[in-house]
């Protein structure tokens, strides 16, 4: 959907509404009334959309475009290619498809896009980590665009956000705030009804920072008043240096899944090896 004509825009909006109406939750109402209601709503929506367009369209050209920085304009182009279907024309969100992006900030965009969670392949309980669609530059442009649209939390500059941080203090904070979901070794864990806290192994400094700051999906938000930027850096240092950088002292770590894999190992390795040995010992030869 690269074309930018008003008709197309209105059409897209209408299509969205139509599909919503078709799959809508109209339950026990009679078919006739439902159709009537649908028609009325469709009409109202069309009027609204058209009206809104006529009201805002000149303003959009007049106010929006000049205010966008160059990066923001680049970001808008990318947005219109990949995000507009679910998040709507001006990032105001499309019901049942995608939330509004007004005020989520650059941090949220960077987290979602750089970890490949957005754009989503399909609607599901939880967006999964994938290879990212956009490169760093494009991600930054998208983030810039959303930031300029509605403001919101932003990440500090730089790739390495843990310089001078204290992993020991970060460890204490990690155990109180993070390990209940992401587990002691950062391998992630299950949440209710198919949701999960992802593994921290592939996460970058900026992604961890952004996740704490914005609380993506079901993760609680850890704003700067709760965990100061320094504390966030400490946590990042603990995750990146201690959990990932510090190799295990006791040999192969069995995935750091705790006693479950240890129990599996004692049967698959210990008992199996010893049963084979006993077969050989008691065998005749």
């Amino acid at each position: 959907m690269t074309s930018d004509t008003p008709a197309d825009r209105r059409g897209g909006r209408t299509r969205g509404l139509l599909s919503r109406l078709r799959s809508g939750r109209s339950g026990p109402r009679s078919r006739g009334r439902r159709r009537l209601g649908a028609a009325a709503r469709l009409l109202a929506a069309l009027t609204l959309a058209g009206g809104a367009y006529t009201v805002f369209a000149p303003g959009l050209q007049a106010q929006d475009t000049p205010q966008l920085s160059i990066a923001g304009q680049e970001g808008k182009l990318l947005y219109d290619q990949s995000c507009v279907t679910c998040h709507g024309r001006n990032a105001q969100g499309v019901q049942d498809r995608g939330p509004s992006l007004i005020g989520v900030g650059a941090a949220s965009v960077e987290f979602q896009v750089s970890s490949g969670r957005m754009p989503m392949a399909r609607q599901e309980a939880q967006a999964e980590r994938k290879p990212p669609v956009f490169n760093d530059e494009q991600t930054r442009q998208l983030a810039q665009y959303v930031q300029e649209l509605g403001g919101g939390p932003q990440l500090p500059d730089g790739r390495d956000l843990k310089q001078g941080a204290d992993p020991a203090r970060g460890g204490q904070l990690y155990r109180v705030n993070c390990s209940s979901c992401h587990a002691f070794g950062g391998s992630g864990g299950a949440l209710s009804s198919g949701k999960y806290a992802p593994s921290l192994r592939p996460a970058s400094d900026r992604q961890i920072y952004a996740a704490m700051l914005t609380g993506p999906q079901n993760m609680p938000v850890f704003g700067d008043n709760q965990l100061t930027p320094e504390q966030k850096r400490d946590i990042i240092a603990y995750v990146q240096e201690t959990l990932k950088g510090d190799k295990d002292s006791g040999g192969f770590n069995l995935g750091r899944y705790g006693p479950v894999t240890e129990g599996l190992a004692i049967f698959l390795v210990g008992i199996t090896a010893l049963v084979f040995a006993s077969l050989w010992i008691a065998g005749k030869s």
């Binding site: 992401h182 002691f184 864990g189 899944y257 705790g258 006693p259 479950v260």
Partner: peptide
């Protein structure tokens, strides 16, 4: 921690 289990 998530995945707090006893021994097998």
């Amino acid at each position: 921690s998530a995945a707090s289990q006893p021994d097998w």
